[in-house]
Amino acid sequence: MSNRLLLATFEHEDDLLAATTAVRKKGLHIVDAFTPYAVHGLDRAMGLRQSRLTWVCFICGITGALGMLWFEHWTASVSWPIDVGGKPWNSLPSDVPVAFEAAVLLGGFGSVFALFGVSRLYPGKRAHVIRPRITDDQFVLVIGETDAAFEVSVIERLLRDYNAVETEEQIDEGGRIR
């Protein structure tokens, strides 16, 4: 599937934010934006919904804690019970620290790998850098064609109002830009 795209380049985050808000208000389809750093408020301007990665972290953390608690119980009171310092075989207070560490470890790794998974980041991936200065000091907004409202000259004029330094029409082949 090929899509017509409009790339607008900005030099300040405020311009990008204002343009994104305006473009979205016009009902145009924002494919993505590319920025050198996490622009505060851009997610809201683009209308991105809350990430569900927090749930991955929560579930991994709970699994880690409960799994480790069970394992400690099993080793200390089922598999090979040993009296240590007169403590009961299954002593919850002394099981807590390690269970906590397991929760943090699993929660942390779980959410990072989930991020790599959903954002398709992996070693050896060829980065599709949309503009060379995108990781330095430029911001790019990508607007996609959805219907007849995609009138390039009109949108270009709109973007000029927001100090877009450059606009360019592109055909997206094979959905390189999601």
């Binding site: 920025t35 991105l48 990430s51 927090t54 990072v112 980065a127 599709h128 999601r178």
Partner: peptide
């Protein structure tokens, strides 16, 4: 290039990245 995992500065990735960064800070 290898270590940056094909990072392209996409706002969608940044959005998730920020979430994970916050989670890691919280952990």
């Amino acid at each position: 290039a290898i270590l940056s995992l094909g990072w392209d500065g996409s706002a969608r990735t940044w959005h998730r990245y920020e979430t994970v960064y916050l989670l890691l800070a919280g952990l």
